[in-house]
């Protein structure tokens, strides 16, 4: 099936090529390959006080698979900041992500056909 073209990860998937300089004095880089359309989903509920407000807010938006861009837009935070917060949550196993579309692999003909059919039905 076309969904098998890439996989979900909850382990370190390598460093992000371009480090982000963050607001709030934090200068850590997001540690996972998070793209704007990488899908993330919460794995488990957390207990009150377990997470700080910022992380809690992000986690609360990810009860269903959702893209990093949508999380950022909904939380009204810059993408770079959201990527770091999501990275933290992945590291702490609150969340998993599905790796982005590998830039070197073209979408399969099957997937393209599904997208085309979907657009025609709009």
């Amino acid at each position: 099936m076309s969904g098998g073209d890439y996989a979900w990860f909850d382990e370190d998937a390598g460093p992000l090529a371009r480090p982000y300089t963050l607001t709030r004095g934090r200068t850590r880089a997001a540690r996972h390959e998070l793209d704007m359309i990488t899908l993330v989903v919460a794995l488990r509920l957390h207990h009150a006080g377990e997470l700080d407000h910022a992380h809690e807010r992000i986690l609360g938006r990810c009860q269903n698979p959702i893209s990093v861009a949508e999380v950022a837009a909904g939380a009204d935070l810059p993408l770079g900041v959201v990527k770091v917060l999501i990275s933290d949550l992945i590291d702490r196993h609150y969340m998993i992500f599905r790796s982005g579309w590998a830039p070197t692999t073209a979408a399969s003909p099957d997937t393209l056909q599904k997208v085309l059919d979907g657009i025609r039905k709009l």
Partner: peptide, 21 residues
């Protein structure tokens, strides 16, 4: 694994793949 509202038709499943144009 279960998601509270995964039966909503518009909510993507765990196998979901995102594409962009």
């Amino acid at each position: 694994m279960e998601f509270a509202s995964s039966d909503r038709p518009e909510s993507p499943g765990i196998e979901a793949m995102a594409l962009k144009i």
